[in-house]
Simulated scan of single mutants.
Amino acid sequence: MLREVTATRYITSLREGGSLPGLVEADDLGTYVMKFTGAGQGRKTLVAEVVCGELARRLGLRVPGLVAIGLDPVIGLGEPDQEVQELLKSSGGLNLGMDFLSRAIGFDSLAHRVSPEEAGKVVWFDALVNNVDRSWRNPNMLVRGGDLWLIDHGATMIWHHNWPGARASAAKPYDASDHALAPFGPDIRAAAEELGPRVTEELLADVVAAIPEEWLRDEPGFDSPDALRRAYAEPLLARAATVHERIRIQDRNQGRDQGRDQGRDQGRIQKGAS
């Protein structure tokens, strides 16, 4: 299970995220980026953050540490922003906190180089969890002390929004053409050889055990939180063995060049016809 702390002060909202995460202090004197059960997709987003964060950490990727944060809605009574106040009021109970990485900056592919080996591990991991939210438009990565950190995994494992279709969704290929690390020549095969065998039934059981039980209750189609935990683990176990075979990466610059060439050809044809 995640370590539990209690929020003692709401500092500010972080409006870069669509779910309106906030920066909070807790009773362990830590500072956390807090994501709320009352926001967006609610507890499913938090579950995805836990599964992906804990899995990434166990595979040797850098992710902020996670805690479960107890929130008393009274903490928002003095908040002047009405939207934030409503969010705090609707998120009483257990929420999710991520260690605040001070002095970290957003990843910029022009300023920070990534080796093919590291890029391959990140792309392989994102394919495993079907992360659709680490594109060059929105990298969801931070750099601190020259090290790459992965953040924001709420938009992963899309199959948990439609459990009857989970098996089919988990078997789909992964298009990494727009991935933020695609330009660095990710070594997918090496990543699969190193990380794939480590995604075992035992490891995944340990990962899903970290999900707080109250986020798993009353899910339609499941008679217990443990049954739902197994449902999270099964697609990942099945996907880990062969997902590298279904990763597609197309050079975006090549696509743009082809588009320009086609445009020039079209222009020549039209000019000749006139």
Rank of each mutant, 00 (worst) to 15 (best):
M1V: 15
R3H: 13
E4S: 15
E4R: 15
T6G: 04
S13A: 14
E16C: 05
G18V: 14
E25T: 15
A26N: 13
A26G: 11
A26D: 14
T31H: 14
V33N: 06
T37H: 06
G42C: 03
E49H: 07
E49A: 08
R57F: 03
P64R: 06
A68S: 14
L71M: 05
I75P: 02
G76F: 06
D81Q: 04
Q82V: 07
Q85H: 11
L88H: 01
G97R: 11
G106W: 00
S109R: 14
E118C: 10
A119W: 04
A119K: 01
V122Q: 07
V123R: 02
D126Y: 09
N130H: 14
R134Q: 06
N138K: 12
V143Y: 02
R144E: 15
G145H: 00
D147V: 06
I151Y: 03
G154C: 07
Y174N: 01
L181P: 09
I188W: 01
R189N: 06
L195Y: 09
G196C: 13
G196H: 10
A210V: 11
W215V: 13
R217A: 13
R217G: 12
D218A: 13
D218W: 12
G221V: 12
D223S: 14
D226Y: 02
L228M: 11
L228Y: 10
R229H: 09
A233T: 04
P235L: 01
L236D: 10
A238L: 09
R239M: 07
A240I: 08
I249H: 10
D251Y: 03
R252P: 03
Q258Y: 08
K271L: 08
